[in-house]
Amino acid sequence: MTGSRRGDLFSPACPTRRLLDRLGTKWTSMAVKSLSDGGELRFTELRRRMPGVSQKMLSTTLQTLVADGLVARRVEDTVPPRVHYRLTELGASLEVPLSALREWAEQHMARIDDHRRRAGLG
């Protein structure tokens, strides 16, 4: 990528910043985790595995993941059409860093929540 300033989060061209802009939502992380655990899933099954996600938000999240090449979409020619999603090889490679982030959160969020309570923010 021409002109990227690697490792400079202050640069809009920074690969890390660009990735965080795309993957920084809870729904994206949950979709990747659900597809990693479940293999190929239909839209309705994926939504069932993601409590609280609306149909519109899941649809938008999946469209973004498909456009980024992280998820593959397969449509069965039935009435109504059955739509299936699965991680691509690139998408599957995200599970390791996302798993590390989940592990970090499980180890440290209680302390962060405690600090927020003491600061009067939670």
Rank of each mutant, 00 (worst) to 15 (best):
V53L: 02
V32Q: 04
V32H: 03
R82W: 08
P80T: 01
L65Q: 02
L62C: 08
W27N: 13
R86T: 06
S36P: 03
E89M: 09
L9F: 11
V79R: 10
L90W: 09
R48K: 15
L94K: 00
Y85N: 05
H115M: 15
S93T: 12
D21S: 14
R74Q: 13
T78K: 08
D37V: 14
V53Y: 05
W104I: 09
I112F: 10
R74V: 10
V79K: 08
R73A: 07
M30A: 15
R18T: 14
E95I: 05
L46Y: 02
V96T: 15
K33W: 11
D37A: 15
G7C: 04
P51Y: 05
F43H: 02
L62Q: 07
S54T: 15
C14R: 02
L23E: 01
R82C: 06
Q107R: 13
I112D: 08
G7N: 04
E76R: 10
A119F: 09
G122T: 09
V32G: 07
A31N: 00
A110S: 11
E95P: 01
L101R: 04
R73Q: 12
R47I: 06
C14M: 09
L87N: 02
K56H: 08
R111M: 11
S29G: 12
D37I: 15
G39T: 02
G69A: 06
R42W: 05
T61S: 06
D37L: 15
K33E: 12
A31P: 00
G39A: 05
E45D: 08
R49N: 06
R118I: 10
M30D: 15
G69N: 00
L41V: 05
S99D: 08
P51V: 07
H84A: 13
R49H: 07
S36G: 15
G7L: 04
G52S: 02
E76W: 04
T78D: 08
R111H: 13
M50V: 05
V96K: 13
G3W: 11
R48T: 13
T16Q: 10
M1H: 14
D113T: 13
M1N: 13
G3H: 11
R118T: 10
E40G: 10
E95N: 08
D8T: 05
H108Y: 08
L58S: 03
G122L: 15
F10T: 14
R73I: 01
A119M: 14
Q107L: 12
A92F: 07
A13L: 14
R48W: 13
A31F: 03
P97R: 04
L121K: 13
